[in-house]
């Protein structure tokens, strides 16, 4: 049970990242740093650039200027598989399981790049974490309920033995009752020492479990502070918290 300690070398960084889509400037001079074992969140409304941030971290989008740094190495031109191999994985928005493949096949695909012997024992760990998943191993994953799919999606991401887990809107599309359980699950994973970078619209929930956070607005980082400070920030309260907008 390790505590989140901010060590001097970040695990994953953005340095002055700018991205474009054609002529349109999406991310503007974004700086981020994720330290090992932290739980951090990125907040922002629709189309603030949150999805692009995740895609750029993973290599699905190439920044026009700036550097994506993993373990001190600039990985701009390295493919997604390079980064996944080095412990950066994602739980996508709306789960996006391989619906026609079985639960087991989905989990195994999570370990696609791994050649070590730990795969079997990791599968067992996932079954322990999610007994419901174990029951449905040979079912086509498209037939599972939303909550169960979320478990499989998280399990699939964990099968890659990540050091930092990116999560895209984990509460999206989940029934309110499940959202709470989901966030508890995230905390649980965090306690195992995995850094978590969460992109969320549900700012309240996210800040309640995070250590730090950023707020993105039309591609620019407008706030960068600890979770408590952000929760107390009046501008933030007005736009994203309290007054009931989403």
């Amino acid at each position: 049970m390790s505590e989140a300690v901010a060590s001097p070398t970040p695990l994953l960084e953005f340095r002055g990242i700018n991205t474009h889509y054609g002529a349109v400037h999406i991310l503007k001079d974004v700086d981020l740093a994720i330290y090992p074992g932290e739980l951090v969140c990125l907040l922002g409304g629709n189309a603030s650039g949150k999805s692009t941030t995740l895609k750029t971290l993973l290599g699905m989008v190439t920044p026009t200027t700036g550097e994506v740094v993993l373990d001190g190495e600039v990985v701009n031109d390295k493919p997604t598989s390079y980064r996944v191999e080095r412990g950066v994985t994602m739980v996508p928005e709306n789960r996006r399981l391989f619906k026609r493949l079985t639960v087991k096949e989905n989990l195994e695909l999570g370990a696609y790049l791994r050649n070590d012997d730990g795969v079997e024992s990791d599968l067992e760990r996932i079954y322990e974490m999610f007994p419901r998943v174990k029951e449905r191993l040979n079912q086509k994953s498209g037939t599972l309920s939303g909550g169960e799919q979320q478990m499989v999606a998280v399990g699939r991401a964990l099968m890659a033995n990540p050091r930092v887990l990116l999560m895209d809107e984990p509460s999206m599309g989940l029934a309110p009752a499940l959202v709470q359980t989901n966030f508890e699950l995230i905390q649980q994973i965090h306690e195992e020492g995995v850094a978590i970078f969460m992109v969320e619209q549900n700012a309240n929930m996210a800040l309640s479990i995070a250590d730090r956070g950023w707020v993105l607005q039309t591609g620019r980082v407008v706030l960068d502070d600890s979770a408590e400070a952000l929760l107390a920030n009046p501008e933030l309260r007005a736009s994203y918290l309290g007054d009931g907008n989403r």
Binding site: S81, V84, E85, Y112, R156, A160
Partner: peptide, 23 residues
């Protein structure tokens, strides 16, 4: 085979397949 699984994954969802590290 693993290749076959990768083919099926890519056939279903290219983006997420690349997330698994599949080329």
């Amino acid at each position: 085979t693993k290749t076959g699984k990768a083919m099926r994954a890519v056939a279903e969802d290219k983006e997420i397949a690349s997330l698994m590290g599949i080329d």
